[in-house]
Design a protein around this nucleic acid. Structure first.
Lengths: 204, 204
DNA sequence: CACTGTGAATTCCTTCACAGCG
DNA sequence: CGCTGTGAAGGAATTCACAGTG
């Protein structure tokens, strides 16, 4: 295919595809057509074919996509073929839930450090990590971590982000309901539970 | 303005606007222009003007939008002017984090019941509610609750949803990484943390 | 005059329709 | 034949540009 800018929406769907292919693999299915994959994911078949074709021709005509090798391809496109270390900031209830969330490992994420500012939490174990004092946040740089998950109160989020900039963090998953000011080199994804819930009554 | 279908993306942004206007109100600002609001929200001014204009002419030319009355308008558009009761299914770590999440009240949400299937959790207090046995899920119908938040393991999610259909639930915020089969009358929003995190390394 | 409100233009994304291939 | 891969068509959302107004 000749040059095309890859739509952001396509990138957003790639992890969906990765999850689907991973699950198919555990089901010992070795190929899947765009039609059947579309059914699973509530998408249209041409959508899937076009999305995947941006990155190459992974499928076999007449058959479909080989599960195992396509999963591997997607993993390397998303740079999830190498373990991605992430730091978790905030060891409250939400932080603890995230630390023990089993779903990250399928994508190759590893929570490699946890920080909090509350003395009573520092030194306790959350998931597999011991909570460190936020003042030791430069550990993130030393450990060569480039991803952070923010599970702190909204009014603390920006000041934590400013620290993370200095630690060479490149991507943030922000769970606070607030807008973060970051350098252009940093990518932020914000998830705001209340906002997502806020659209539902409109449709009911 | 003549008839226009309102874009889904506009609906998705409305809670953002509501949050922004609510915050402006607590800051005692009484008007805001689309330019300044756009700066706060990292959007473009015409986007905001167009979004709001789908629902009417809330602004004052030469001045901007009146904070208090626009907030009220958005709240009623989203049907958040009346308290929306929600049931929380799953009282694990994630469920507990959600039960105590302070952000829901700004949007008028009230977690009115919590359910779990684990005997050790039933009867304990999480947030302001006592955890009920999932077998009592029909309480949802009796309490006239039409929203549910799903914080259960992925393999349990579909079976819970099937029960919720019978309870006349109309909207679900699903926090499990899975696709739910629901009747057309039901609206589902799924948030998959790992998937959101999965896009970040690509951009780094 | 400074801003909103809005048709028109543009950009972006999805879907179609079919050529091409195993 | 059945499915992928893909230009082209279509549709949706964003942005522009400016008329309209307090």
């Amino acid at each position: 295919m000749k040059y095309h800018k890859i739509p952001d929406e396509t990138i957003r769907r790639m992890p969906m595809y990765l999850r689907a292919f991973s699950m198919l693999k555990t089901e010992h299915q070795d190929t899947i057509s765009s039609i059947h994959l579309a059914e699973r994911l509530h998408l249209k078949p041409p959508q899937i074919r076009k999305d995947l074709s941006y990155f190459g021709a992974f499928g076999t005509r007449g058959i479909g996509y080989p599960v195992s090798s396509t999963a591997k391809q997607i993993r390397s496109i998303l740079k999830l073929n190498i373990t991605q270390k992430a730091a978790l900031i905030g060891a409250g209830r939400l932080g603890a839930a995230i630390a023990e969330y089993p779903g990250f490992s399928m994508f190759g994420f590893d929570i490699a450090a946890i920080f909090d500012n509350e003395p009573s939490k520092i030194g306790t174990k959350v998931g597999k990590n011991v909570v460190e004092d936020i003042s030791k946040i430069s550990m993130i740089r030393d450990l060569d971590i480039h991803l952070a998950i923010l599970a702190v109160p909204a009014d603390a989020a920006q000041s934590v982000v400013d620290m993370l900039v200095g630690c060479h963090v490149k991507g943030i998953l922000n769970l606070s309901p607030c807008y973060l000011v970051v350098p252009r080199s940093m990518k932020v994804v914000t998830i705001d539970l209340a906002m997502e819930l806020g659209t539902l009554p409109y449709y009911m």
